[in-house]
């Protein structure tokens, strides 16, 4: 079965496990080009673990993750390395390299993967930081800026190489409502202007409805996905009580 033409990431029969402990089984969904795809579900259902599988940090117990038409886990290391260059990841805490300044964090990727000279690299790093509202913070170390700024710097680093896909692990966790809203706006803006596919792990309802165009809902009890689709459509049409309760904060 060939994935549809505009499918960017296809997950087939994915089963995730730590040792003998199954996290989720039989996941099947497709992320299309330009989607803002939300991975949602209650705490402990394996959202972040799913992301670790998608970005190549953890090998699945069974099943496949396909980028375009290529299966990540069936590729050789060189091919995997090539696929990795097509996506950027923002970790929950930012995960900036603490021994380097913000500019160096971004420059490291550019030095490694482009032929730009030091002056140009510096300019690109400044631009990426400016895009996330951190102009003038080039020479700050991660420990010297606030948690929200670290997250934004994490996004700037994830965008360093203009990736086709951006992954976000709980971008708005631990942020005040205004910063969370600004981050949502930033994600929308980047999608509009760059056409990047976004995959976001979150359980913030406000974000889910504000930016999500597609989603998958994981259930910790049955250990599999319940449904997939646009969150607004799910709210209107999905008959599953767990999904409805989640999307309405238990009101319906």
């Amino acid at each position: 079965m060939e994935p549809p033409a505009d499918a960017h990431i296809t997950v087939r029969n994915l089963t995730m496990a730590y040792g003998d402990f199954i996290i989720q089984r039989d996941l099947n969904f497709t992320i299309n080009r330009g989607d803002i795809f939300i991975i949602m579900g209650g705490s402990g259902c394996g959202k972040s673990t799913l992301m670790r599988h998608l970005v190549g940090l953890k090998a699945p117990r069974a099943g496949q993750v396909l980028y375009g038409g290529e299966s990540y886990w069936d590729s050789d290391p060189a091919q995997q390395h090539h696929l990795k260059r097509r996506f950027g990841v923002m970790y929950q805490s930012g995960a900036l390299w603490s021994s380097m300044t913000l500019a160096e964090n971004i420059a490291l990727l550019l030095e490694q993967y482009t032929d730009l000279g030091p002056e140009q690299i510096r300019r690109v790093a400044t631009l990426k930081l400016a895009l996330v509202g951190l102009r003038g913070f080039e020479d700050f170390y991660p420990a010297e800026i606030s948690g929200g700024m670290q997250k934004r710097a994490g996004i700037a680093r994830a965008m360093a190489l203009d990736p086709e896909i951006l992954f976000f692990d709980e971008p708005s966790a631990g942020l005040d409502p205004i910063s969370a809203k600004n981050l949502d706006d930033l994600i929308l803006e980047l999608r509009e202007s760059l056409g990047t596919t976004m995959v976001i792990v979150t359980h913030e309802l406000a974000s889910i409805f504000a930016i999500g165009s597609n989603s998958v809902f994981l259930d910790p009890e049955t250990k599999t996905m319940i449904t997939t689709g646009n969150p607004h459509t799910l709210l209107k049409e999905c008959g599953n009580p767990k999904v409805r309760a989640f999307l309405t904060r238990g009101a319906a």
């Binding site: 670790r52 970005v55 190549g56 940090l57 390395h81 990795k84 260059r85 996506f87 950027g88 990841v89 970790y91 929950q92 805490s93 995960a95 900036l96 390299w97 603490s98 490291l108 990727l109 490694q112 993967y113 680093r157």
Partner: peptide
């Protein structure tokens, strides 16, 4: 502590 802070994961996903 780099591992705790996901910095090592970040190296891996950046291809280092």
């Amino acid at each position: 502590s780099m591992n705790v802070n996901e910095e090592i994961d970040a190296f891996q996903t950046c291809g280092f």
